[in-house]
Design a protein around this nucleic acid. Structure first.
Lengths: 216, 216
DNA sequence: CGGTTAATTGAACGCATTCAACACGAGTGG
DNA sequence: CCACTCGTGTTGAATGCGTTCAATTAACCG
C-alpha cells in the first residue's frame, strides 16, 4: 500500500534539524488511514505537522464545490503552517500516514528559541516558494504543459518507475483541469512514447528531454 | 499621478511595528520612477523592502515570454521576502515610489531579535496567504469571476471611485488572461451596470452584491 | 493638432470542457 | 469460477469559453 513512502526520502528532507528534533521530543505521533482528514478547512491552526510516512494532500473547496488541491506532501515535509488563526486548506491522508504533531504554543513556549523560529520561517518560505511555482503553473500553461510539469516533478531525479499516490481527480484539481483532460494528456504523452503507464497508478519517463521541454 | 497612494493606507498596514521601526532606523530610502526596476528576476535576494508610497508589482517571465504577475503592493506592504537566495520574481514600480530598503543581514545582525524574526515570519505568512488565494483564483475561476474578484479586492471597503494603478496588460498577467478578455469582461460588467468606468483608469462599484456574488 | 501607445471591439479559431458511453479492476456473493 | 456491481479511468462527439488575429477607437503627449 505505502510501498514507496514508508521511509523518509532524503532528497525531500527539509533539514530543519532543530525543529524536527523538538517535534520528536515534545510532539506526539498519530496515524491516519487512507482518506482520513488530518485537519479541516476552517479549523483552528493550532498545530504544526511533520509527515513521517505516507502522502498527504491539502485542498480547498468553494461553496459551489469547485476544488483546488494546494499541494502534496511527502515524508519529511512540514505542513499546516499556513497563516492563522484558521486553516484555509484541509489536509487529508492520501495513503496511510504517520504524522508527528506539535502544538504551536509548545514550540513557542519551549524556546522563544531563535533557531526554532528560524526553522519555521524556513519551512514557511519553502511553502511560499511552492505556492508561487504553482501560481505560474496554473496561470500560464496549457493542459499538456501542466501535466508534463506534474509528472516531471514526481519523477525528479528518478529514472525508475514512479508510483502515483493520487488519483486522477486529485491531479486534475491540483492542475486546474478536468479529469478527462488529464486523462487525455496522459494518453497523448504515452502515445508519443514520452512516458509509459504500465498500470494506471505507475509510470516511467521514457524521454526525459521531451518531457522537460514541455514543462518549460 | 499618485493621487491615492502618497500616504500610507492604514487598512493595508501590516502593523509589524518592530520591523518597520528598525527599517526606518537602519535602512535607507530610495525613490523609483514609473516602470523602473527595483530588483530583477534572478538577482540575489539580499534586501528587504517596505513600500512607503506608490504601487509596486512583482512579475515573472518565462523564456517564451509568458508573464505572470505575482502581486501588487501598496504603501505599508513589505515585499522581496521570497525564498532566497535569488529572487524568483522581479519587482517594478508601477507608479513613482518611495521604498525603504534594508539589507537582510542588517536585520539579522541588529538583533537575532526575536521580535524581528517574528515580524518577518508574519510578513512571509501574509505573503503565503496571498499566494494561496491567488492559486484558487487562477485555477478554478472563469474569466468573469477572475475580473470580478480583482475589482472587488481593489474596491474593498470603499464605495467611492477607485483608481487603477495598473494597465490592462498587468491585470491580464495577474489573472492569467489576455488583455482582450479582460477588456471584454470589464465592458460586460459595465453593460450590466455592476461597475462603471468613467475613465479607463478609474471605476466605481455600482452593485456590490452582484459583484460579490460573481467573485464567490 | 499629428503621432504614439493603450484599450476596445469584431470575427474566426482552437483548446479544454461538458455530456455521454464505454472499459477496466477490485470486491462480493451466488 | 463466473456474474454482478461499484468506483475509477478512458474515449468520443459536441459545445463553448477564452484566445488569436485584425481593425478600430480612445487616451495621452509632444
Amino acid at each position: 500500500m505505502t510501498l514507496a513512502y514508508d521511509l523518509e526520502d532524503p532528497r525531500r528532507s527539509q533539514r530543519a534539524a532543530g525543529l524536527t528534533e523538538v517535534m520528536d521530543r515534545l510532539g506526539s505521533r498519530f496515524s491516519f488511514t487512507r482518506d482520513e482528514e488530518i485537519y479541516g478547512q476552517g479549523d483552528g491552526a493550532e498545530h504544526l505537522y511533520r509527515l513521517a510516512s505516507g502522502v498527504v494532500r491539502t485542498a480547498r473547496v468553494a461553496v459551489d464545490g469547485r476544488r483546488q488541491v494546494g499541494d502534496f506532501y511527502y515524508p519529511g515535509d512540514f505542513f499546516g503552517l499556513e497563516v492563522g488563526p484558521d486553516h484555509q486548506f484541509s489536509a487529508e491522508a492520501l495513503t496511510a500516514c504517520d504524522v508527528q504533531v506539535i502544538r504551536r504554543s509548545s514550540v513557542r513556549a519551549f524556546g522563544g528559541d531563535i533557531e526554532l523560529d528560524r526553522a519555521i520561517l524556513e519551512a514557511t518560505r519553502r511553502e511560499l516558494q511552492r505556492a508561487q511555482d504553482h501560481m505560474l503553473l496554473l496561470g500560464r500553461r496549457t493542459a499538456r504543459e501542466k501535466v508534463a510539469a506534474f509528472l516531471i516533478n514526481l519523477a525528479k531525479a528518478t529514472d525508475r518507475g514512479v508510483e502515483l499516490p493520487m488519483g486522477r481527480q486529485d491531479m486534475a484539481d491540483y492542475l486546474g483541469l478536468t479529469i478527462e483532460t488529464v486523462s487525455r494528456m496522459l494518453t497523448q504523452l504515452q502515445d508519443e512514447a514520452i512516458v509509459e503507464f504500465p498500470t494506471v497508478r505507475r509510470f516511467q519517463v521514457k524521454r526525459p528531454e521531451a518531457l522537460a521541454a514541455l514543462a518549460a
